[in-house]
Design a protein around this nucleic acid. Structure first.
Lengths: 196, 196
DNA sequence: CAGTATAGTGAACAAACGGTCACATGTCAA
DNA sequence: TTGACATGTGACCGTTTGTTCACTATACTG
């Protein structure tokens, strides 16, 4: 119990905030879950709001480093089936990675009260996936795998339904298997529609 | 200032809760906005949670009476352009109707803490629109307007992206015009893809 | 007119909240 | 050994929270 206390606070804050919201989480409960007393928290953060801001900084940095970076773009699939495989791999990760799940839930809860949360929510829920799949579809058109079309429109049409099913998993985890099956069914229907 | 106080409380609770969340709203602020003193509220509701439950009852009833009822199904369009018109009309309503907007925001905020809110959120965000458009697409296939395909899959593929853009309006109202343009562009792209 | 609900008031309450402070401990360098 | 720094403790503070209660004013009913 030493220098990593700050990180443990942040991790637990993400957990609690994503469950009960910022206002629904109190400092006593948060610190006692770490085996600390509330006043100890103020050695690491100036205030409750400082925890929130640090958490947002971390979420933004995590997003930029991962999904947001152009270097992390997956390779253009060599086949239609490759698109399904890629999609299912990404879906599996984003549905089961605890940190990502909690981040999405927290953004859903706080998106209307904090401007930075709002902007990050738009990236997570809308623009991020579209931006990632647009060059993929462009590449698959260039390879003659898909019909020539507006790649950005296709990426939006492809990712938005998948995103809706990911939200379903966040909301009703017991329907995760159903959602994953529907993502795969949708993916196959999509390529059946747009295959060259 | 008489019998409608209860309804005025509920209306303002929807407004406040959808902005700051249940935990982020306090009774003094809520009642003083109505020109009352906090204790007056307890003539109409037993507790703060009772307001929340009554609000949920109302939202559920409102949904069932409107979007959820099979009687309110719009007529099957007679042309592809008719589908665009129908879609834009519904989008315009759901984006601009204050009560519906606030309901969606509230469900986004509280979906992880209340089971009934969770279930209603799934209807609002996923199953509701799909269930409404499935028979429409079935009818348009029967009329020879659309290619024969799985109507439920098509309805999902059609409504999920539109739903994502509606969420964008809730989150960033200043982008409403952009979102409406994108809904129409998506709708036209969709019918270009699936027209018979 | 008397009587009784109904609706609103203002003071008071205990509990929970975020935050501060003087103090105790442990670590490590000079 | 000493002094400085980081970390954790427990008592305490002022404020805000949801809620209660005795009381008043108005309106309807017999």
């Amino acid at each position: 119990m030493a220098k990593d206390t700050k990180e443990r606070i942040l991790a637990l804050a993400l957990d609690k905030f994503s469950q009960n919201g910022y206002d629904g989480t109190n400092i006593r409960e948060l610190t006692s879950s770490l085996g600390l007393v509330k006043s100890a928290l103020y050695r690491h953060f100036d205030s409750k709001e400082a925890i929130w801001n640090a958490l947002l900084d971390e979420m933004i940095a995590y997003y930029e480093a991962g999904f947001g970076s152009s270097e992390h773009l997956p390779p253009v699939p060599d086949s239609l089936e490759g698109l399904v495989t890629l999609t299912m791999g990404m879906a599996d990760f984003t549905i089961h990675d605890e940190k990502v799940v909690k981040t999405r839930k927290l953004l859903s809860i706080e998106q209307f009260r904090d401007e930075r949360a709002r902007d990050l929510a738009t990236k997570h829920f809308l623009t991020g996936l579209t931006a990632m799949f647009t060059p993929l579809f462009q590449g698959m058109m260039d390879k003659g795998l898909l019909l020539r079309d507006d790649p950005a429109m296709l990426a939006f049409a492809y990712t938005a339904p998948i995103s809706a099913l990911i939200h379903l998993c966040d909301r009703e985890p017991e329907r995760t298997d159903e959602a994953i099956r529907r993502i795969e069914a949708f993916s196959r229907h999509f390529i059946a529609t747009y295959k060259a």
